[in-house]
Design a binder for these strands. Sequence first.
RNA 1: UGAGGUAUAGCUCAGUGGUUAGAGCAUCACGCUUACAUCGUGAAAGUCAUAGGUUCGAAUCCUAUUACCUCAACCA
Length: 877
Amino acid sequence: MDIPSKYSAQTVESKWYDYWMTHNYFHSTPDDREPYTIVIPPPNVTGVLHMGHMLNNTIQDVLIRRARLKGKNACWVPGTDHASIATEAKVVAKLKAQGIDKNDLSREEFLKHAWEWTEEYGGVILEQLKKLGCSCDWDRTKFTMDEDMSEAVIKVFVDLFNKGLIYRGYRMVNWDPEAQTTLSDEEVIHEERTDKLYYVKYKIEGENAYVTIATTRPETILGDTAVCINPDDERFTHLKGKKVIVPLCDRVIPIIEDDYVDIEFGTGCLKVTPAHDVNDKDIGDRHNLDVIDVLNPDGSMNSFGLHHEGKDRVIARKDVAKELEDMGLLVKTESIVHNVGTSERTKAVIEPRLSDQWFLKMEDLAKPALDAVLTNGEVKLFPKKFENTYRHWMENIRDWNISRQLRWGQQIPAYYYGDGKEDFVVAQNLTEAVELAREKTSNSELKASDLTQESDVVDTWFSAWLWPMNVFDGIRNPENEEIKYYYPTNDLVTGPDILFFWVARMIVAGYEYKDSRPFENVYLTGLVRDKQRRKMSKSLGNSPDALKLIDDYGAGGVRVGLLLSSAAGNDLMFDEALCQQGKQFANKIWNALRLVKGWEVDNSISQPNSNRIAIEWFESKFQKDLVEIEDHFSKYRLSDALMTIYKLVWDDFCGSFLEMVKPSYQKPIDAQTLEKVNTIFEEVLKIVHPFMPFLTEELWHFIKERSPEEALIVAKWPETKSIDEALISEFEFASEVISGIRNIRKQKNIASKDAIKFSVVNNENATSTFDEVIFKMGNLESFNYVEDSIEGALTFRVKSNEYFIPMEGSIDVEAEIKKLTEELNYTEGFLISVQKKLSNERFVNNAPEQVVASEKKKEADALAKIETIKGSLASLQ
RNA sequence: UGAGGUAUAGCUCAGUGGUUAGAGCAUCACGCUUACAUCGUGAAAGUCAUAGGUUCGAAUCCUAUUACCUCAACCA
């Protein structure tokens, strides 16, 4: 079979992906083999592939392909997340563009639009993953809003409610006025902002005196229900027990005392607005204060805003300040840098808001999950440093607000039958709800139409946390064969940004519902940043087009490029040059096979000794690196594993091995060697395959015709064999000799095609194993062992061996002396440092025996080398 | 503000108390030698952030400082 001179990634990649799909290699069903399972972190259903996904999924594909080669029953479950707030925001925007207001639609109408949107854009990202080469079991593709998935979510909600872990509470939550929904604490991003701090005077009731407070939010003055001082603040002793009058609305409110107030900050006097600040709410609860909410859900002022009613809070802030100034109550303003919570999705400034929400008690649930990571090691985080972060979060876990005022998601299965706080039941469906409600009310006449279902949906993560169980239907059918076979899964690969959102909660759910970990290892990737260390984001426009990268460098090039510099947990400074390097690596391997394929076989010639040695050496070197690669993989150091492979292939396989066995120009190769070379090539392709699946599969079939059962994707990972360490170090020595020859050729401009005479004084008693290799690689005319230095020759040294290349014409004695002197100086300096150690009695007495022995060996080697150099110098002078 | 992390070659990073500290890329020089110029051969490049300490011995362990990163924090 002829190999094209260039590797065309595009045609090759689609060809093999189709081939793999046709032959169903990605599909897994339970069998006798050991399972290896990964569930994909489901991307947003309407999302598009970005660099983070590329990195993430490349890692997963490397792991899954490697497991497949190792004979495991590899199962990678793909899917997408309905991403309630993100998707709903997009649908709302689309409707708005069409002139439709979400609030004018019924729930059913809105959901119809959302499903249309999902069907139109959904799954694009999964198609993109195929381009990257991801070998997911597409037959298992799941969506968090699939009917069975939703059913399980509801089942879990009902169960947790019945266990008393879910409750309804009037709490202060993070309110996104843009999306008009609550957000969990994790969805709030705190941004540093510069705002104005307003100093406002409040008149003291019955006195012609004022007290000054400082606030960044004058519009909430209308919601003030107290002014608070620190009881220890001596400046304000005279205020104790008095009242003040709220400006603008002239409400009379008490001056209260609470330790919370920081004497140092502002004026030391705090206005308390329980409806709009968590801390104020706490103070309010302690002092039984009224709660006055001045805002509408969209962030505009309500009737408590008086003549500011209807204005957005930001506008009202300025207007109120102006009004206060006109009234002479604004003492001063100053700039202040503080943190403001913003919505992760809509970027809107978050309002603390009191409302009825559903909460999940976390404290008890978190305990097994905490132990799993920190005590018994059932779940391991890579890198380990995230354990601290995990501990910190889990130990300070707060109840999870799981309700969202959205429509796109699983509707909370609570059914109200009255206006009382407790007038509701929680049930799997309406029929059961009716029954329950009849029981609870003792009213057997109650009908379905008397019940109203809660309009809120659950937080997206409340479905995502069940993902590893739910994709195998483990919630609805806990004893089914698949969940028993595939669960717990093996590895989870995701970004540290969702360690709490998702990873921790999956662990919680795993212990609660399967009484076991959801996965054994969590590989936390870093963020993908650009060369200037900026986060890649749409707004900065610094994120390269993922698909264009694949077009430009091939999926293999991009995969290698991404993994070359991405240690687990470390941010990845993405640089397209790395993809270029990946592409060049593909080219290198491609051309290696072209070389081998170009060789003519001659069955009549026997195997040269140099080839036999070369094969033995490479097999050992391969094994040695294989051990290293396994070790890297075991620690999830994929980048190091890849680099080891890269060097093994480029330097050892192409640079040394193929050069050693390569027949000379237009000469044939012996059959025995060629067969071995092919076998070795196959072993190399196997270890490269997880990183560059397409290229290696293509070459695999170029080496010989294969049936579908013999495809590389399902080949057998190389077995480990014994390593001949001596052979490897002998080769290293020989390499230095070859380098020495090349150096001299270079310095003296001796063309590599001109054969040269070569002699050695073998002071080291080096073995002659690689002499034939040296002969060939150095293009020697002769290779003699001699007892004494050769006059009129160029020299170099390896350890204490001295090598000679006789030169026609004159030798530059000055240059030789200079070179020798430099070597001598270095070696003597080295010797001194070693001897200094050895003459230190405390070192000799305290250091371990083998350390002292190795120092002594160094000393002896250095002395021998010095001897050699001095001899050469003497003969030159 | 707190917690955690990081600091080693121009860049990205290895380095497990014991080699006068390594790799890949980039740079420079030379070479189109019949797989690959997407290549080959070679060279140069480091006060291991700073200051102390422990130790026979520190890039490695400890302390402090500085800088950067991440996470957590609603001093109004």
